[in-house]
Simulated scan of single mutants.
Amino acid sequence: MTRIGFGIDVGGSGIKGARVDLDTGEFIGERIKIFTPQPATPDAVAATCAEIVKIAEWPDAVGITLPSVIKNKVVLSAANIDPSWVGIDSHELFAKHLPGTDVHVLNDADAAGVAEAHFGDPLAKSGAVMMLTFGTGIGSALLIDGVVFPNTELGHMIVDGQDAENIASSRIKDVEELSYKKWAARVDKVMHEYERLFNPTVFVVGGGISRKADKWVPLLTIETPVVPAQLRNRAGIVGAAMAVEAGLHP
């Protein structure tokens, strides 16, 4: 029998959910997307997640990613969602909006990393893997043989006196109108620092800009292999669904 899970990925602009074939990482049926409510308060976002579950007619446990550090089920940060999330007990919140449903909540980059380790490039399936997602900031996930060390937030590591994501996020590339060559030099500086401190066996690079990996990955000078993410915008949903089967409650 096919093992099926359901994942929801909460982003700053959209909240997306789908059934996932846990053996292949592929979606079963269409992805459901609803625009993220503004302001993206806890109750508004949780109600939207409940609406997605209702539309999908999904009767079982649900995995949900948040752009947040989550520890002991408590939300400790809020990126691109309302600041009122900080301090919220995610279990209590989703129990109110999805009564009787077992909900597993995790960081969005961690979910993407787990999904890529299982269904992405073969180099990411074992060893010490560092996934980096380049977008509004820099998301990160550290994995050992597919098992995640949660909530690393390496986009906030200080490089040359600044947060790494203020040097090398794709948002910075757009804001400063950097060429791929100039932006890749900044990414290279940040990744050299990650390489020096963590010595991963492979870097997986994601985010929308990974679609054009051929324009910047070859310009990097780090010694560690760098491979583009394979699941693209499916990774968060897939990782969320996988978290349910793994029984993950950060």
Rank of each mutant, 00 (worst) to 15 (best):
R3P: 01
I4M: 06
G5H: 00
I8C: 08
V10H: 07
G12Q: 05
G14K: 14
G14H: 12
K16Y: 06
L22R: 00
L22Y: 00
D23F: 03
D23H: 11
G25I: 08
I28Y: 01
E30R: 12
E30D: 14
K33Q: 10
F35V: 11
F35L: 12
P37A: 02
P39E: 04
T41R: 10
A44G: 10
A46K: 06
E51G: 09
V53I: 14
K54C: 12
K54Q: 14
A56V: 12
V62K: 09
I64W: 10
P67H: 01
V69I: 14
I70V: 11
N72H: 15
K73S: 15
V74I: 15
V75Q: 01
L76A: 09
L76G: 14
A79H: 14
S84Q: 15
V86R: 11
G87E: 06
D89T: 02
S90G: 07
S90M: 03
S90R: 04
H91A: 14
H97G: 12
L98G: 09
L106A: 09
A109I: 04
G113I: 02
P122N: 05
P122S: 07
K125R: 13
S126G: 05
G127L: 01
A128L: 14
T136S: 02
A141M: 04
A141N: 05
L142W: 12
F149L: 13
E153D: 11
E153P: 07
E153T: 07
D160S: 13
G161A: 04
I167S: 06
I167D: 00
A168F: 02
S169K: 00
S170H: 02
I172W: 00
V175E: 12
S179C: 11
A184Y: 01
R186W: 01
D188N: 15
E193K: 14
L197D: 08
F198C: 11
F198A: 13
N199A: 15
I209Q: 01
S210M: 06
S210A: 13
A213E: 09
W216E: 00
L220K: 04
T221G: 08
V227P: 01
Q230G: 12
R232H: 13
R234C: 09
G236E: 11
I237S: 06
V238I: 14
G239C: 07
A241K: 05
M242K: 08
E245N: 10
E245R: 10
G247M: 13
